[in-house]
Nucleic acid binder design. Sequence first.
DNA 1: CTGAAAGCGCTTACAG
DNA 2: CTGAAAGCGCTTACAG
Lengths: 340, 340
Amino acid sequence: MKKLYLKDVAKELNVSKTAVSLVLNGKGDENKISQETQQKIISFVKEHNYIPNQLARGLSRGKSETIGLIIPNISDTFYSKVAGVIERKAKEKGYTVLFSSSYEDPKTEGELIQSMLNRQVDGLIIASTQKNKKEIEFLKKEKFPFVLFDRFYPEHDTDYVIVDNFYGTKKVTEHLLGLGRKHIGFVTLKPGLEPIAQRLQGYHNALQGHNIVANHDYVKEIKREEYFSEVEEALKDLVLCKQPVDAIVFSTHYLASQGLRVLKKLKVKVPDDVAIVSFDELSAFDIVEPPVTAVVQPVKEIGCSAIEILLSKIAGEVQTKFQTKVLKTKLEIRGSCGNK
Amino acid sequence: MKKLYLKDVAKELNVSKTAVSLVLNGKGDENKISQETQQKIISFVKEHNYIPNQLARGLSRGKSETIGLIIPNISDTFYSKVAGVIERKAKEKGYTVLFSSSYEDPKTEGELIQSMLNRQVDGLIIASTQKNKKEIEFLKKEKFPFVLFDRFYPEHDTDYVIVDNFYGTKKVTEHLLGLGRKHIGFVTLKPGLEPIAQRLQGYHNALQGHNIVANHDYVKEIKREEYFSEVEEALKDLVLCKQPVDAIVFSTHYLASQGLRVLKKLKVKVPDDVAIVSFDELSAFDIVEPPVTAVVQPVKEIGCSAIEILLSKIAGEVQTKFQTKVLKTKLEIRGSCGNK
DNA sequence: CTGAAAGCGCTTACAG
DNA sequence: CTGAAAGCGCTTACAG
């Protein structure tokens, strides 16, 4: 069984390449090809397992039925979950997904965008490093279909899907305040990412609402690449000082789990000595000790919305304005905050 | 700045398309194109950001510089980690990766293999459902480059990268025996996957080595799709019976975490009443309560080996025989087994 | 060193 | 309904 090409199929069946191609692309009826011929072609193709070369098809039609997904890190549980739903939805619509991780490096991200464009992807879904204004501007100018998620460019109008980060931390901080915690620390990443900034604002806003003056020393900004050791330093500062905190909000799941790891090592009792909460979820958060209260992101909705918006753009639907979605988070209360 | 094509570059520079193409493909020297011309071309291309259409390039050269990755589930932490290292390594070598999840469905997997072939991937890395003998045979017959990982087909000679599943469970079961546990349960998936079978054998082998007659009721086989509820049923059987187990080996990380979840719900004390261990790791296993002893798979090595083998096959290196790797696991001892 | 030309395997107006 | 033909944007012998 040698490899079949379009011309082989046509020859076998004594029809033209045109006919075969038309039928396979579902244009048989509109070109008035007899049902009989259509059937003949379809069953032959199925039986002999002919499948068109997508490179040729893509080149000829100017599209590839592929979408590109650029994320900070495919190994991170949040992104791998979103990737899963995007892939699933994409496949339903006949698209395959090309993915690549930027590892938070703007240069890599820029190269990936270019590389995806060369590969003629039909659209792009990006959780950006937020440091590639140029590429984003370029995509906009070219009217190339793309949608941002998780991170977006506040100064640029684009389609995006994000989560209400502000309200997420605000709510969880208020939850801590409601339980009588007064000295609330905030362990987060160094500035640069919009969601991170919003999470910090939500925290501040909650404190203000309770007339608490934010203690600047209570906010610890961690360098992501060295979060393992820096979280440890930060927690020592927060906990082993003369005015220790009695609660800590971690702005990502990995900061939270490392935080808990360190607190255990320091023999700090959670939640008795300090309550902790995490922005974003880890599947094991309900079985760690204590179970960690978390702000849960609607992973499925994020992925679905992103792909839907993208596909509508690819389909060339008329856009009166940019499609943006800000999804609600959910507060999952577990044991790490104790009771009142 | 309109889109540039090869012919535009050639025209701008007053050279032939051939020259530009040759230079860009690093064949300038061997075709004796003057350094001056080469420089001119390279700098123009860089400056104007010309990048060849990979579809056309691929069609013309008969390869796409893309590799396909087919795994059961991109959202599973094990596969997403392996995917991460594969992607990274692939990129280093100039390859992009197309990924798709089979969700353990053989039919989907078969379609994915076909779909990847259409897209002219240069090679395939597959963690198979092990129920697509036909496709695997097909790939072999076509001498299409592929390597299996995690799961392989014992009856078929192929290249593969796996882990020593047998020895992994054997060692961890012996660890439990060494701690004085005598009634050891084994919670696993229904048969069908080679690694799962090997893990079961390792368990049995360890028991035999200690002259313990395996109690058939102590082995619980779970249907993966309903593991959440079935683990609960299984554990009730194992723990709430007249001769309860004093230790349980879980053959995957999700069975283990669900197991722990259920044991907590049943108020069974771990490790006092029953010790538990997990085959495969979860990043939070060190902070759950109690920390879970686990057989850790060398994720990085798995990914690296798979991609290396694949690339060597793509490069067409002479293969005297199939390349197979069986990597060692590592036993990470934590608190969930107690002490002697 | 260059340039015209064939070819990769499709799709799709176009003339019949 | 069919078939010849152009075209998608490259690569690569081949003749000069």
